[in-house]
Simulated scan of single mutants.
Amino acid sequence: MSFSKARGASLHRSTEVRERGLHSGGPTRHPDYYLEDGNLVILVEKTLFRVFRSTFTRHSPVFRDLFSLPNPEGSTSEGMDDANPVQLSGISPVDFERLLWVLYPLNYAHPRAGTLAEWTSILSLATRWEFSSVRTLAIHHIQSLPSAFASPLSPPTPSPVSTSPDRRPSKATSTPVFPLDAILLARAYDLPRDRWLLSAYTALCTRPAPLTSAEAAGLGAEDTSRVARVREALRAREAGSRLGGYCAPTVSSAARARLSAGAGTVTGGRGVLDWSGSGRGATPAPRPATVLGTRASPFAKGSPPSTSRSPTAFPGPARLVAETFEISCL
């Protein structure tokens, strides 16, 4: 048989196998991610993917260890063809496809994933298989999605809307990330305890409405108790402020405190301090009003302005939330 006839017969048999698999409910090839020049066939449920082995071994130590295991004598290496694919269980073809969006992007400037559900799929598999750079990318995009809570440290920045034809918009694109979603996501995938998580907890603690039963069940007993304690403390602080029971330190009180330490001068009864520390002979300089709270000013003589944030450096209610939930954004 000539080469052309043999090749034609092989292609015909291959077509028959695909059609038989389609009609019998067997595996089918993914329309976008069965790459003809790939060298690794992966089966997820009933969908075949054909990708490059080097992509997985380079970025994932889990796959690197998997493919470093020797094959039994006389056996065909897994992943060589459709008849002997690498089978991945416990995931869906949709989730695996979304991971491939990142590994084999159609447009590098505009990631195809755009919703919380899509990026969560990518984060889940990247965490499971230790794709560290993909995990970092997913966390970045999740925290950049529009949210239903504002950051207590900086104004929210809306995420840019992609107009790329490779990005397929969905109805969920404009759905914001809610505080409970952010908290549960951070807990499930061990996200950094940073200002994004602080913003979510602060939103739950400062909103007018109390936690619902569903929210309390999702948070668990410990976090629900913490939210209740913070809300009670904030209400007490607000009530004390209305009744005159809570006063912020003024310039005069700060001046008297500094004078008692022998470091400054009070003049004219208005709390003007000599911050030069040279006594009454020097020209007094006005001191800006102290911010709300009881901590010392970071602008005292000899102390440059601090650029890091400890839990006690957050403004307003966020400081109490940070201390209660042990969140530090340095």
Rank of each mutant, 00 (worst) to 15 (best):
P111T: 00
P111W: 00
R112K: 10
G114W: 01
T115E: 03
L116P: 00
L116H: 00
L116C: 01
W119P: 00
W119L: 03
S121N: 14
L125I: 10
A126Q: 04
T127M: 09
W129C: 09
W129K: 02
E130L: 13
F131A: 00
F131D: 02
R135K: 15
R135D: 11
T136W: 09
T136M: 14
I139D: 02
Q143R: 11
S144Y: 00
F149Q: 05
S151M: 03
L153P: 05
S154K: 14
P156K: 10
P156W: 08
V161W: 02
T163W: 09
P165G: 09
D166G: 11
R167P: 02
P169A: 10
S170R: 08
P176R: 06
L180H: 10
I183D: 00
A188Y: 05
Y189Q: 08
Y189V: 03
D190R: 09
L191N: 03
D194F: 06
R195A: 15
L197P: 00
S199I: 07
L204Q: 05
C205L: 02
T206I: 06
T206Y: 07
A216F: 07
G218W: 07
A221F: 11
E222W: 08
E222P: 03
A228L: 07
R235Q: 05
R235V: 00
A236Q: 14
G240F: 02
G240E: 15
G240W: 06
S241D: 12
L243C: 10
G244W: 02
P249V: 14
